[in-house]
């Protein structure tokens, strides 16, 4: 079975928040973001001079804790691995919000129902990629099938961010270790 997930190229990510705002524009919710940029101090220099950034939303976990927590059975996982909230069934109790270990679910103040990244399900049905991926100016975000063996070498965790492994989040990180090329050096 397929399991779609995000691949984040941490060395490319500038922390520009294009993904955050494009997502907000696409899904149009006042005051809440489905996607968030995290800035973490680098492993090598812990003095606060160097950071790495990565973008994270719902990780469409293999074992979604939110799905089991929902008393209405409003959360489902599609055969491509995308976790969706059925807005018609959601009662807005907020249990999923507390169950999610990644704070990916927020209560939408306008609808009083749970809201999270749906991996632009409607756009994907039209054959388009997610808005965050298309908006990233440095192609730091990608959608991959994490069950595909060709992506198995990517990291499941990132330095400085505690990942809850219980739910098996469908996110992978790619940190390219390239030496900085100084233009004045030969």
């Amino acid at each position: 079975m397929k399991q779609l997930g995000f691949l984040v190229h941490t060395e490319k990510c500038l922390g520009c928040r294009s993904c955050e705002f494009s997502c907000k524009n696409e899904h149009g919710h006042e005051g809440s973001f489905r996607r968030k940029i995290h800035s973490i101090e680098d492993e090598e220099s812990k003095k606060g001079h160097s950071f790495h950034h990565f973008s994270m939303a719902c990780n469409h976990c293999e074992n979604p804790a939110c799905m089991a927590a929902c008393p209405e059975g409003a959360i489902k996982k599609k055969p491509n691995g995308v976790v969706l909230i059925d807005k018609a069934k959601c009662s807005g109790c907020g249990k999923c919000e507390t169950a999610c270990p990644f704070d990916a679910i927020k209560m939408n103040p306008l609808t009083a129902k749970a809201d999270k990244c749906d991996m632009c399900y409607e756009r994907q049905l039209q054959g388009k990629t997610t808005i965050c991926v298309s908006a990233c100016p440095v192609t730091a975000l990608e959608i991959i099938d994490i069950n595909d063996p060709k992506y198995s070498h990517y990291d499941k965790a990132i330095y400085g961010y505690e990942m809850k492994k219980m739910t098996n989040p469908s996110i992978r990180f790619h940190k390219i270790k390239v030496d900085i090329q100084h233009f004045w050096c030969r």
């Binding site: 799905m67 059975g73 489902k76 996982k77 599609k78 055969p79």
Partner: peptide, 10 residues
């Protein structure tokens, strides 16, 4: 496919 749907509330 059916069993997947059963286990993932589809």
């Amino acid at each position: 496919h059916f069993l997947y749907n059963l286990l993932y509330n589809n």
